[in-house]
Every structure is written in C-alpha cells, then in structure tokens.
Design a protein around this nucleic acid. Structure first.
Lengths: 220, 220
DNA sequence: TGTTGTGAAGGCGTTCACAGCC
DNA sequence: GGCTGTGAACGCCTTCACAACA
C-alpha cells in the first residue's frame, strides 16, 4: 500500500459509521452512490478511497454491507483493542473517561494520571489516579500503546515527551496547543479553540458554505 | 477578500495562540520564520496566510507581536462575544460547560437544553437545564447565535434542524455523526471517533509521520 | 442496464524564489 | 543584509469519464 492521505483515512472512519446505520436498517448491499449520499461525499470519492486498499465491490451490484464493514475495520486496525493511558483527570479528562464511545470503538483506558494533590489516589471507575512520576513504570507494566493528553496547555508538550520516552507510539492531544513529536510517533489533536474560532470566522464573514451535499447542500 | 481556505483559518487560530506565548515572553517583534517555527509550518506559509488579509509586516523587521495579534483577532471575528446554546447536558456537555477556555475565547453559554427527565430543571452553573421544546423560544429571547450539539448521535441531525429553524447561523457538533445543514449555516465538528480511528490506522500501518517541523520532525 | 475500478484531467493549497522595501 | 509580499511552479487530492464486468 502506498501513501494514504489523512483525508482518505478520516472518510473511511465515516463510512464505517454510515455502514453501521445501513446495516441496522437491514440493507445487505450498498452502492458507492448510496454510501456517498449518506456520507456527504461524491460516489467517485468513495470508490477511489476504497480502491487504494482493494476491490471490494461487484460491478453492477455494489458492495456487501457486512463485508465492507469488515474490510474497513481491518484497514483501520480496529480488529484489536488498544490500551490507552489518560493524563489529566480534570473536566475534560473525566468526561473522556466516562465517554462510552471510547470503549465501544476498541480503546480501553487502563491508566489515569494527574499531578493535582487532591486527585492523586482517588478512584475513577475501577482505576486509581496515579501521579505523573509513575507514568513510565505503569504504562510499561500495563502495555499502554496510546496516550491521551487532557491537561492544561502549558504541560502538554512535557507530557508528550514523557509519553514518547515511555515508548508510546500514538498520542491524542486535547490541549489547545501544537505539539512537536518525532516522526516515529503518531499524533492527532482535538482542538476546540480552533473549531470555535473557525466558526467565528465563518459567521463574521457570512460565507459558511463549502461543498455540495445530499439532503441539504453540505457544510463541513 | 476572496475565498479563504479552511486550512488558512485554522492556522490563523494557531498563530494567535503562539503570539500569546511570544507576547508573554516579552518579545515585541517576530519574523515569519519565528512564528512558523513555533507553529509547525513554513515561513512562506505564514506570510501567504497573512497576505490574504493585508500587509501587516515590515520588510527587514518582521511583525509587531501586539499589532498582529489584534489583526488576527479582528480577522477571526473575536472582537465580539458570541452567545452559545448547549444541547446535551451529559458527560461531554457538562465538561464543555465547565471548560474555562470556552469563555476565555469569547464564547458565552447562555442556555442549556436536555430532554432527560432527571436533568431538566436542574442547575448548571447559574443556568437551569431546559427541555428541548423550549429551544426556539429561549434561543431567540437570549439572542443565541451558535449552537453546540453534545447529544447521542441519533439525535444530532434533528437537533441541528431545530437549531436552523430557530435561526442559528453556526453549529459546533460533538456527536460522532456527519450532519447535513443548508449552506447558509456554518458547521464544524469535533469527532473523537475519527481521531482515534485515524490514530489506530497510523499505528497499524507503522507510518505515522507527515510533515517536516521544528524541534522534532513534526506529526499532525 | 447498473455499478465498479481507475487513468487522466482538473482544481486547490503549499512551496519556491525573487522583487521590493527597511 | 534582512525580511516581507506575491506571482509562478509544483504537488497532491478530487472529480471526471469510460472501460470492464455482473
């Protein structure tokens, strides 16, 4: 497999959720057109995205919903469960911990860290909040592969470096700050400040639209 | 001003946070190179992004940190405060409500809605959680401009339509589902499932790197 | 006829490279 | 000399359009 663009991967992730809906609706087959309509992209885009990984459809018929789901899950690496360490047990961290979607998608939080005196030692679900100093030891002991950063922005880079030192290979960052990591580590960021400010820009300039879609002309 | 790409707007939002840091460090002037290094982009990119909106720098000298901050804030529409309605007072919704960054960036949550029997009527900060049926009336009464969706995915599209019907012009969606809105409405989404699955893809394929950067070769 | 898979064309955003100015 | 602002070149992603096939 060649180089796959991030946009393609993100769309695959979307197709997967749409396929779940289609499966729940009892449909067995779906065409690129059907999948595209519900995903807000063009049919050609759907076919192109899938073509990077193989030929999963049948000409004249479309794609088997169940088979395509399985293919995409395999492509995305969702056939295993990932072990996650959460750093930061404040507002955002606690909400993430309680967020069921997390576990449902195959990500298990197996350790929680914080440095606030009044949080260390407390229970969160069936885990105990540990001090950051224990990060490397516990992460290695529990086989953590992915780190989630939910600390204030001023600590985010330092925590990322600690995660890298502990051998983690993926980081999901919720702190509103750009992080720098070596290219052996995968980094994704969820930055609410950027989304809000980009909304603000769109509203202030009264030109929010961007792409054509299905039920409505589509934005975002 | 022509059409501005979403990438440019998102980078501007980043420059703003970096400029805050630089200002805190007591620097008065910054070059495109300096700003680029701390933002994880190229100097040419910084200059190009800014050039869409005007000529803010001085050749040979760079940009005034304070002036550039003010320019970018104006460009992003951050010189006013935005009135926000939050729908969904569960895990994510409550965390968003308590998230200080929200108010700090100029976004005030002025109404909270939920449909769960045990939540309606409860207090959240100095607001009372209202039933969804009151959405249009209260939003109009309180001058809401932006809606935040923090409900389970199956209700997200319906809530979006209710927001549009009530005249809101911007929506920030936290539900892991693609929404369809008319192109008169600005939509941004924060989708954790996509980020996690794209991390999973990167780890499963062992090719996480994407762009060259500063302190480390940069990912994301 | 209906739909996929894909090379080629097109469009858009990033990078280059240099003229213009301090 | 140093740095910005910007047209032009480049490269990547999306869209087109059609051959292949059920």
């Amino acid at each position: 497999m060649d180089h796959i663009s991030d946009s393609t991967v993100r769309r695959l992730s979307n197709y997967l959720r749409v396929l779940d809906e289609i499966a729940s609706a009892g449909e067995d087959m779906v065409s690129s057109h059907g999948l595209a309509g519900r995903s807000g992209v063009t049919p050609a885009q759907v076919r192109k995205d899938l073509s990077y990984f193989g030929s999963f459809g049948r000409r004249g018929l479309g794609y088997s919903v169940a088979a395509l789901k399985a293919e995409i899950r395999a492509i995305l690496g969702l056939n295993k469960r990932w072990r996650v360490a959460l750093v930061g047990a404040g507002n955002i961290g606690s909400a993430l911990f309680a967020y069921k979607e997390f576990g449902r998608q195959g990500f298990d939080i197996v350790a929680v860290f914080d440095n606030a005196e009044d949080r260390v030692g407390q229970r969160l679900g069936d885990l105990t909040i540990e001090p950051i100093s224990e990060f490397a030891r516990l992460s290695q002991q529990r086989g953590v592969e992915i780190g989630v950063i939910a600390t204030p922005p001023r600590h985010a880079q330092e925590i990322a470096e600690r995660m890298i030192a502990a051998g983690l290979k993926g980081i999901l960052n919720f702190a509103p700050r750009k992080l720098f990591v070596p290219d052996t580590v995968a980094l994704r960021s969820v930055n609410m400040a950027i989304e809000l400010e980009s909304l603000s820009f769109a509203l202030a300039h009264g030109e929010p639209a961007r792409r054509a879609g299905r039920r409505f002309p589509l934005a975002e």
